[in-house]
Amino acid sequence: MTITKEDASQALGEIDQARGRLREAISYGYAWPYLVLWGLAWMIGDLGTQIAPARLVGWIWPTTSAVFTLASVVYAFVQRRHSPYAAGRRDWRPMATAGTIMLFLVILTFVIEPLDAKRDHSVFGLFFGFAYIVQGLWLGWRLVALGALLTVLTLFAFFALPLWGGYLTFMGLVSGGALVLGGLWLRKL
């Protein structure tokens, strides 16, 4: 059997590609349910805030966040036990990372207040957008694309739409919807 240097180089490239593909699939497999969950949270939180009576407006997002945080934690335990990849069942780092991010966001809320509601909301939108971009740099380009989309949508809504004149509806439907569809897109892989 004769293998040239070019054949060898191509073969090693195919090996790297196959490894990268597996790494992506494992990462996307873990990530997609949380994108769908938090996309739904975003839709409920923002659209709920838009239509809720004035006396309930301040409760919508804290309640939504608490419910979906609990749902995420429960799902994380279930996912870990039923992971198709044994390594995932032993790896505590994804949950620790999510917990650390949640804690940071809670602390950030206290440190940056008072902010007007639109700025407050946009900070979180931009945070998640860039967080997905950074995650995607390590895990796969689809997360980069999703993070970039979220960032662009948040910036558009912040500069173009008044809080009660379309911002919340746009963020809920379009940004939340983008997260849900993005999660389902990752699921296909």
Partner: peptide, 21 residues
């Protein structure tokens, strides 16, 4: 060394020891 077999082996070899796909 055949292309698809190489990629099969690269994928399976990337899993922890004993893990099945």
């Amino acid at each position: 060394h055949q292309s698809l077999r190489l990629r099969i082996m690269a994928t399976l070899n990337s899993l922890p020891k004993g893990e099945k796909l």
